[in-house]
Computed example of a mutant assay.
Amino acid sequence: MIKKVIVGTTVALLLAACSSKETADTTHQKIMEKGLDAVAENDFAKAEALFELSVEDNPKDETTKAYLKQVMLIRQANEDVGNDKEEEGLQALQKAKSYKKGSKVISAKADEQIKLLTPSKTKEATYRKLFTEAESLAKKANYKDSNDKLTALLNEDLDNYRDIQQAAESLKDKNAAEIEKKAKEEQMAANKNSTVTQPTEKAYDPYEWAPGVKEEFEAELVKQQYADSVDTIRYEKSQLYNNQGFYTVYAQMDGVEMYVVTVNAKTGYYHG
């Protein structure tokens, strides 16, 4: 095994240092101590190799097996965390910490790593909750409030949470596009309503009769017997004065059409 080769020199020197009078138990104990020293230095690969050699030399030693298993669990936890599997890593560390017949030194190292990972898990849960809230607001077309939450999220240190960061940036861009689209639609609707509702100012016509003037004038002509009836009255545009139009009026009297008067279309004033 490669890990045996890595620590082979260390073990060889250790064995060579032991005098011929030292018992096998003493040699075994020294290897165990070296393994625990490696644990204290956070060199779990070296510790695993030493404990594994010790187990091979003493396959019935349950304590050494327990030490080896603890170190293997810590190494597995570190690998899980490196692969973004923090939950699995925490579970492995909990097992290493509470392993029966295990080393208190190794248990303490496992506990150290648990305490480092727990705040990280809490942060991740907080970040994911914030993103979920922003996502829910976006689905309800509440894009502004959604982006407010995303802005707060992206202001956090997300170097270790790249998946959350990328999802937040993507959703924020989509929200911004929807906000811009909605603003354009509202502007178009406002422009359309303004065009439809705005009254068109009618051009001034000097020859257009003022309201009620023509009817009153014609009734007066018939009353004064200047016309046989309203139906016999005829108008011709005559002249403009002070931007007011005057009509020359013809009407039939006793069946014969003749000039009657000139009338102001705005005031009804007539002469002639």
Rank of each mutant, 00 (worst) to 15 (best):
Glu62Phe: 14
Glu62Ile: 08
Glu62Arg: 15
Thr63Ile: 15
Thr63Leu: 15
Thr63Gln: 15
Thr64Met: 11
Thr64Phe: 11
Thr64Leu: 15
Lys65Thr: 07
Ala66Arg: 12
Ala66Trp: 12
Ala66Val: 08
Tyr67Pro: 03
Tyr67His: 14
Tyr67Thr: 02
Leu68Ile: 08
Leu68Met: 10
Lys69Pro: 04
Lys69Thr: 12
Lys69Leu: 07
Gln70His: 00
Gln70Ile: 00
Gln70Phe: 00
Val71Pro: 06
Val71Arg: 09
Val71Lys: 08
Val71Cys: 06
Met72Val: 09
Met72Asn: 10
Leu73Thr: 01
Leu73Tyr: 08
Leu73Ile: 00
Leu73Trp: 00
Ile74Tyr: 00
Ile74Met: 05
Arg75Asp: 06
Gln76Tyr: 05
Gln76Val: 02
Ala77Pro: 05
Ala77Asp: 07
Ala77Lys: 06
Ala77Trp: 03
Ala77Arg: 05
Asn78Met: 13
Asn78Arg: 12
Asn78Leu: 14
Glu79Ala: 10
Glu79Met: 08
Glu79His: 07
Glu79Gly: 05
Asp80Glu: 10
Asp80Gln: 10
Val81Trp: 04
Val81Thr: 04
Val81Cys: 01
Val81Ala: 07
Gly82Ile: 05
Gly82His: 03
Gly82Val: 03
Gly82Phe: 07
Asn83Trp: 06
Asn83Cys: 02
Asn83Lys: 13
Asn83His: 08
Asn83Leu: 04
Asp84His: 09
Lys85Ala: 13
Lys85Glu: 15
Glu86Trp: 06
Glu86Leu: 09
Glu86Val: 14
Glu87Pro: 00
Glu88Gly: 02
Glu88Leu: 12
Gly89Met: 01
Gly89Arg: 05
Gly89Trp: 03
Gly89Leu: 02
Gly89Ser: 04
Leu90Glu: 13
Leu90Ala: 12
Leu90Met: 15
Leu90Cys: 11
Gln91Asn: 14
Gln91Gly: 12
Gln91Asp: 14
Ala92Trp: 00
Ala92Phe: 06
Ala92Gly: 02
Ala92Pro: 01
Leu93Val: 03
Gln94Arg: 13
Gln94Thr: 14
Lys95Leu: 13
Lys95Tyr: 05
Lys95Pro: 04
Lys95Thr: 14
Lys95Cys: 04
Ala96Thr: 10
Ala96Tyr: 11
Ala96Arg: 11
Lys97Asp: 12
Lys97Ser: 10
Ser98Tyr: 10
Ser98Phe: 08
Tyr99Gln: 10
Lys100Gln: 13
Gly102Pro: 04
Gly102Phe: 07
